[in-house]
């Protein structure tokens, strides 16, 4: 199934005003009706937690209400509807999108992707011995740069059963596991992208179920640093980073947020195709970060598998 990646994440929040300020300061553009867009039109949507138009909340503290995937075309939507209708309700909403749930209870949406194609340069780097990427007399450091998130990259869930959750996305929606933390969960990419992951799942006890973090791709490591510094200078508090992950190789910087989860900047994630063989490692600081400027030994809670697992 040609699912491209997350088009939008929808939250039912406690503090609309704080979230509006936060998402604007993060660098997204407020386009009205609670929608905050990256440059390619992917978005975060915030509504009041009491908004009756939202899917019901999970039974936990999470404020994430829906993950909306963008797909290639109407044919893919029809295929998803046929597949998921085999064992669960699939609603066709008035805007033509589909709505259903995954096997953990997270509400999913599917729509023909709103992503606009971008034509922008990546960060250019020169190194001795390598062909020149940034030309003579072109300055690399721009103190006044105002980097903008380019596209919604990935979302990370806490799930009570990583094996069951992985099987749903693999068997029903055609996601591929690119790497895995042993006993914790998979990094997965849908068929329509080469990105190392658009979904990562971490097994935790059921009362933690929800969104751990989500992130937008930036134009390069310098933009991650500069956008993160912009957040620090506005008084926001870093959660983890800046640093560089091992699985996915993406540069990262996480910030706490009023959305009840962390929000990240990332850049330069690995790309993969069918020839890639998934790696596996124990989760921990050593396997999560190549290097880090603010050390964090433990960055996510994990938990044992639920009892009586089939």
């Amino acid at each position: 199934m040609n699912i491209i990646g997350p088009d939008s994440l929808v939250f039912g929040v406690d503090d609309i005003e704080a979230c509006t300020q936060y998402l604007t300061d993060y660098g997204l553009e407020s386009v009205g009706e609670g929608r905050f867009e990256a440059l390619d039109g992917t978005s975060v949507v915030i509504r009041s937690k009491d908004d009756a138009s939202l899917p019901p909340p999970l039974e936990t503290a999470t404020q994430l209400r829906k993950t909306v995937y963008g797909v290639a075309d109407q044919k893919v939507l029809d295929d998803i509807e046929a597949e998921l209708s085999k064992d669960r309700e699939v609603k066709r909403l008035s805007d033509g999108s589909l709505e259903s749930v995954d096997d953990m209870g997270f509400t999913l949406g599917f729509q023909v992707s709103v992503r606009k194609s971008l034509s922008m340069a990546a960060e250019a780097v020169n190194a001795p011995g390598a062909p020149k990427q940034r030309d003579v007399n072109v300055i690399g450091a721009e103190p006044d740069a105002d980097p903008r998130p380019r596209t919604l990259s990935h979302v990370v869930y806490f799930v009570p059963d990583h094996a069951k959750a992985e099987a749903f996305y693999a068997d029903r929606l055609g996601f591929v596991t690119t790497d895995r933390f042993t006993g914790v969960g998979p990094f997965m990419r849908p068929a329509g992208t080469e990105d190392h992951h658009t979904l990562f799942m971490i097994q935790t006890p059921p009362h933690m179920k929800g969104c751990e973090h989500f992130t937008f791709h930036m134009g390069g490591p310098t933009e991650v640093m500069q956008a993160g510094t912009r957040m620090v200078n506005k008084g926001y508090q870093s959660f983890w980073g800046p640093g560089r992950h091992i699985f996915g190789s993406n540069w990262f910087w996480y910030f706490k947020s009023p959305l009840g989860c962390n929000m990240e900047y990332d850049a330069d994630m690995d790309l993969h195709d069918e020839s890639w063989k998934a790696r596996e490692a124990e989760i921990g600081a050593d396997t999560s970060q190549v290097f880090l400027f603010q050390h964090r030994e433990k960055w996510a809670p994990t938990g044992p598998p639920p009892p009586n697992k089939a």
Binding site: D14, A61, M208, E212, S257, P258, G260, C261, N262
Partner: peptide
């Protein structure tokens, strides 16, 4: 939280 009723952790929403 917005109403001043509860203490909230912004990392994972406790």
């Amino acid at each position: 939280d917005a109403a001043g009723q509860e203490i909230v952790c912004a990392a994972h929403g406790a």
